[in-house]
Simulated scan of single mutants.
Amino acid sequence: MARWGAKVRISFDNRRTRLHAKSWIFHRNTGATTAYIGSSNLSSSAMLEGLEWNVRLAALESPSLLEKINAAFESHWESEEFRAFDPDDDKQMEVVRKALDQARGGSGPDPILSFFDLKPHGYQQTMLDTLAAEREHGHTKNLVVAPTGVGRTMVAAFDYARMESEAQAGSLPRLLFVAHRERLLDQSLTAFRHVLKDTAFGEKLVGGARPQKGDHVFASIQSLNAGGRIDALDPEHYEVGLPPSATTARTCAGGSTDAPPTRCGCGTPSNSDSSRPSTISGSTMVRT
C-alpha cells in the first residue's frame, strides 16, 4: 500500500497496543462520506462470505457520528506511538520483521529491539493521577478496575516508573508482581522493561526460574505457594506489591495485613459482590 502512494503509520509496540480496530472511511467530494466499522478485514471473503458483523455509517444520515470517528482516527494518526512507515527503508523493514516474528510466538520475555518514549493514554493518565491523589491522602492499598484491553499492566508499569522517579537517585523500589500464568509474567516483565528502558530489570519466579537478587520479582502464585515460600516472605522487604487481579490479591494477602506498604491490584469489573469495597473515581479504582 505504501508503494502505491498510501500513507502508512505503524506502532511497533505490539505488547502494549494490540491495535485490533477495523474501520474504513471513504471521503467523497460530494460530501457523501461513508464509514464501515466492524470485525472483518476489507476482503471479498470477509465482507461477502465470512460470518462478520459490520456497521455502515453515512455522513448525510449521521454527521455527528462521522465527526467522532474522524476525530478518533486523527488522534491515533497523530500519536507519537505510530510512526511513518517507509518500505524502502531497510533498517525499518528489519525492525518490522523482528516485531512480526515476536508477535507470532516464542517463549520468555520478548527481546527488546529498541526503546520508544512510551506515554500513557488519556484514560490511563486519569487512573495514574487518581492513584497518586489517593496515596497523598495516605491510602496506599488500591485496586484499579478496568475492562480488558485498557492496559492495566501498562498502568502498573507507568505507576511504578513514577515511584522510581520520586525515589532516591539510583534506587528502585523493591517490587513483587504476581500472576497466575507464566505468559502473563513474560508480557508484564516486557512491559516494565519498556517503560523503565531497562533490559535487565526484573527476575522471574516460575517453573524452573529462580531470582538471584530477589528485589524485583515477577512470580506465579503457584511458585509462591510451593514449599511455603509465601509464608516465609518478609512483608517489609517489598515496597510495592502488584497482583494483577482482585482474586490474586486476595490469594496473596489471604486477608492478612502483612503486605507491602504500597499495593496496587488490577482487575476486570465483573462478578461484583457485597464484600467488594465501594467504588470511587468513576469505577476506575477501588480503595481497600
Rank of each mutant, 00 (worst) to 15 (best):
A146Y: 10
S165A: 15
E164I: 07
A146F: 06
G170Q: 10
E182P: 01
R152M: 02
G149E: 03
A169V: 04
R181I: 11
E182N: 09
M163F: 06
A169P: 00
R152N: 06
S171F: 11
D186L: 01
V150I: 15
N142K: 07
S171V: 09
D159R: 11
A156D: 12
P147S: 10
A169R: 09
R183Y: 10
F177N: 09
A161T: 01
Y160K: 14
G151R: 15
L176C: 06
E164Y: 04
E182I: 10
E182H: 05
L185Q: 03
F158K: 15
H139N: 11
V144S: 10
A167E: 13
L176K: 02
L184N: 09
G170S: 08
A146T: 13
D159M: 08
L175A: 00
F158I: 13
L143E: 05
A146Q: 14
V144L: 09
G151Q: 13
R162I: 00
R174G: 01
H180V: 04
L143H: 09
E182A: 06
L172R: 07
L175H: 09
N142A: 03
F177E: 05
V178F: 11
R152F: 00
L185F: 03
V178M: 09
L175K: 05
A156L: 14
H137P: 00
D186G: 02
V178Q: 06
T148N: 09
A167M: 05
R162G: 05
M163Y: 06
E136R: 15
R174K: 03
G149Q: 01
G151T: 14
R174C: 03
M154S: 14
F177M: 05
V155T: 15
V155E: 13
L175I: 00
G149A: 04
R183W: 07
E164T: 04
G170M: 09
H137T: 13
K141G: 02
V155K: 15
E166S: 12
Q168D: 14
S171Y: 11
